[in-house]
Design a protein around this nucleic acid. Structure first.
Length: 270
DNA sequence: CCCGGAACCTGAAGGC
DNA sequence: TGCCTTCAGGTTCCGG
């Protein structure tokens, strides 16, 4: 599942292969992938444009063009962007193909059709709904404490709330809570200053390590060249069916929090 | 505003 | 072997 480290990797690896090139054709094999505007206008506003840069905000890719449009991509759970030369066999479940003028195409594959693309005029339409970026200097223990104060929801649910912190998904929420020895059902307001400090450190540590490993390929995540990331090989608890705790040896448990599978060490996480 | 649950979607996995 | 059910989860929407 693309979360911050996966989207960051895609951004970094896509950028040198697309920057400065023009979109020569857009094929939408599933029109619903163009959330806004509709399929026809999406095509006409994208074809002919030159890609000038890519940034990431939360789990969104924001691709800038030589027009006043920003091309926004969200891969949701199962989406990936694969670059292949013209004439190559499209990956299975390809929903859109963006052909470039350099002899390659970007294939947006997405088995579950959750992924979306939009053209927007203003980055703030996306950025305004999102909390701080956890890997910037802006994200401090103090800011985290402010944002968790008065919150009665379980910390696991709060970490998944993109308006609270942007970019954390199910896997890295579990990893960060394990690294901080905090039980996923603890309420936000119940965390002590020391625990918030630990959690802040754990979030940054876990996300940075995953970026360095080019993301985690637990499901259908692929890098733009089709290879996998290796962050999941270092997971302590996430997707840990049958694993034992690397710290105390207790069996990793699975529970459901807010309809999300949640893995934890019941002995280490209090 | 805050919280929790359902819906969206389809392939994989498990039960019988 | 095959049909059926359940599960996976990022975001958005809705009811309380």
């Amino acid at each position: 599942m693309p979360e911050l480290p996966e989207v960051e990797t895609i951004k970094n690896e896509l950028l040198p292969r697309v920057r400065g090139h023009r979109v020569s054709d857009v094929t939408l094999s599933w029109e619903g992938i163009a959330r806004q505007p509709g399929a026809d206008e999406f095509r006409s506003r994208l074809v002919g444009r030159k890609i000038t840069g890519i940034t990431r905000r939360g789990k969104y890719l924001i691709i800038s063009l030589d027009s006043d449009d920003l091309w926004v991509v969200h891969l949701k759970m199962t989406g990936s962007l694969i670059i292949k030369p013209d004439g190559a066999e499209p990956p299975q479940h390809t929903r859109a193909v963006i052909r470039l003028d350099n002899g390659t195409s970007i294939f947006f594959r997405d088995p579950r059709k959750f992924g979306v693309m939009q053209l927007v005029k203003d980055k703030s339409t996306i950025a305004n709904k999102l909390g701080p970026e956890p890997l910037t200097r802006e994200f401090t223990p103090r800011l985290l404490a402010q944002r968790l104060a008065q919150r009665t929801a379980p910390i696991k649910a709060l970490l998944l709330d993109q308006s609270l912190i942007a970019g954390i998904g199910n896997m890295y929420a579990d990893e960060a809570l394990f690294a901080a020895s905090i039980h996923p059902l603890r309420s936000g307001s119940s965390l002590s200053p020391e625990e918030i400090e630990r959690l802040h450190h754990a979030i940054q540590k876990v996300l940075k390590a995953a970026v360095n490993s080019k993301g985690a390929s637990v499901d259908t995540y692929f890098r733009p060249d089709g290879t996998i990331g290796t962050a999941h090989f270092s997971f302590k608890v996430a997707h840990g069916k049958g694993k034992t705790c690397p710290r105390c040896g207790a069996p990793i448990e699975r529970m459901v929090v807010r309809n999300r599978g949640t893995y934890l060490c019941p002995r280490c996480q209090k």
